[in-house]
Write a protein that binds this DNA or RNA. Structure first.
Length: 437
RNA sequence: GCGGGCGUAGCUCAGUUGGUUAGAGCGCUGGAUUGUGGCUCCGGAGGCCGUGGGUUCAAAUCCCAUCGCUCGCCCCA
């Protein structure tokens, strides 16, 4: 039986053209976050499974993590996320790091589940975190960084919306304003989290069913449904509006305004799935009706470093997945044409392979990436190969060119040919490439 | 884990109520044109019709199973 050529389910092969796109995307990410002073770190792809048990729900670890036993009988997981790992790294050097830390990484992550659009088993996720900087400036900077990445991909504010909420506000609403118990609160939060996938009537019926008769008589169900319809902070009931988290949200919105971020909105229905968030949460939504989904998000999670037995460190961060980002860039037609790493394809005319080595070596020494076609095929086929590879320039080398020291260089996109010395060809190609030198 | 859709050439797909040797476009390849791509013309290769079983004189087509892909649900780090 023949072996399959398909990649493992939910994972991707990166052929050179795919890798080119990935390099472009990672390049924009790196340039942007480094412009804010973030430093890159990395870590092993394997962690002891307890690391995820401590923080996540049992179900996720058991059913959605790639886990196995190593030869020494230790239970090991392929990392499904980077946050516990980076928290571990910070905890390990808690006393000696220069806070605030601005750290980023682009790890490869795995989760075991049925693949679907925008969600594969394997993905790469930019993780950006600030450690040791309490207060809204860190939230503002993290959101500003996320916004800058999208801008540097060419996105404009009409293409996406940044939704903000506070976990402290949600907790206050559940415990003090609605007076529901912890179990009810959890259920309601999950329900609200998917309310936009349901129709209004079904949602309201399910909300109503969550409350006990006495709570319903006290108006809790109607209070919640009414509250979730409110879009403006000023329209919130006074008891909610006076909670301290509201001032924090307003302060954050003010900072974002100063940073010229015009598409950030308060959204009381924003929950985010996990419960390790302790304060501000945010999520970036694609406005394209064809791809209307949450692209990525983040927030403050002050408790994780402390799980490693050291004094807690306040942390704000976000994760941006490559799959959803690529969907966004495609939906908004933001992917630029990507060119080959190869600058020049050397087309050899006749039996000149040996004699052509000198000039080809010169081109490389002067900084060009040159692929040589040594197949001995006729020129037409060599040219076709170069075009198919996406190489921008062809240089023709035959007896005549070698004798004269002048080579025909052709722009394969326009078809225009010129004859030049090797050094002149180098400057033409570098000019196209955008080099300064 | 649950549900919908789809599996025919390298790719995108057509294939009538079951009926000869399964097609098209693109791509690949040879030539027209042995020192120069894209346009044109002529030729060629390439198919276990996902897999296994069943119904039938006859199956790409109908039935069952299975595998794979895909979209959604659950969940979402």
């Amino acid at each position: 039986m023949a072996l399959t050529t398909q990649p493992y389910k939910g994972a991707r092969d990166f052929y050179p053209e795919d890798k080119r796109l990935q390099k472009y995307m990672f390049g924009v990410m790196r340039r942007t976050v480094e412009s804010f002073g973030y430093e890159e770190y990395d870590a092993p792809i394997l962690e002891p499974i307890e690391m995820y048990l401590a923080k996540s729900g049992e179900e996720i670890v058991n059913e959605q993590t790639y886990a196995f036993e190593d030869r020494g009988g230790r239970r090991v997981a392929i990392r499904p996320e980077m946050t516990p790992t980076v928290s571990r790294m910070v905890a390990a050097k808690r006393q000696e790091l220069a806070y605030p830390l601005r750290w980023y990484s682009i790890p490869n992550l795995w989760r075991y589940e049925r693949p679907q659009r925008g969600r594969l088993r394997e993905h790469w996720q930019l993780n950006v975190d600030i450690f040791g900087l309490p207060g809204q400036t860190s939230e503002a900077e993290i959101i500003q960084t996320a916004d800058a990445i999208l801008k540097n991909f060419g996105a404009t504010h009409d293409m996406y919306t940044i939704k903000l909420n506070s976990r402290k506000l949600t907790d206050f609403i559940m415990r003090d304003y609605l007076k529901v118990d912890g179990v009810q609160a959890q259920t309601l939060i999950k329900l609200i989290d998917r309310m936009h996938k349901m129709d209004r009537a079904a949602f309201e019926a399910e909300v109503d069913a969550m409350f006990s008769p006495s709570q319903r008589d006290a108006g809790a169900s109607n209070k919640l449904i009414g509250l979730l319809k409110i879009k403006q902070i000023e329209h919130l009931p006074q008891a909610v509006r006076e909670h301290g988290s509201i001032k924090e949200i307003q302060n954050l919105m003010g900072l974002l305004n100063e940073a010229r971020i015009s598409n950030a909105v308060f959204d009381i229905t924003l929950m985010r799935g996990f419960d390790y968030y302790t304060d501000i949460v945010f999520e970036v939504f694609d406005n394209d009706p064809e791809n209307n989904r949450s692209m990525f998000g983040g927030g403050r999670y002050d408790g994780l470093v402390g799980l490693f037995g050291v004094e807690p460190v306040s942390t704000v961060g976000f994760g941006m997945g490559d799959v959803t980002l690529q969907n966004f860039l495609e939906a908004h037609d933001l992917l630029p044409p990507l060119r080959s790493e190869t600058d020049v394809y050397a087309v050899l005319i006749g039996d000149v392979y040996a004699k052509a080595q000198h000039v080809i070596g010169e081109l490389r020494e002067m900084g060009l990436n040159v692929a040589v076609d040594s197949t001995g095929r006729k020129a037409a086929l060599q040219i076709k190969t170069a075009v198919k590879k996406g190489v921008h320039y062809a240089i023709f080398i035959g007896e005549k060119e070698l004798a004269e020291g002048l080579y025909e260089v052709r722009n394969l996109m326009t078809g225009v040919s010129e004859r030049h010395s090797a050094s002149r060809i180098v400057s033409i190609v570098k000019d196209y490439r955008g080099d300064d030198d």
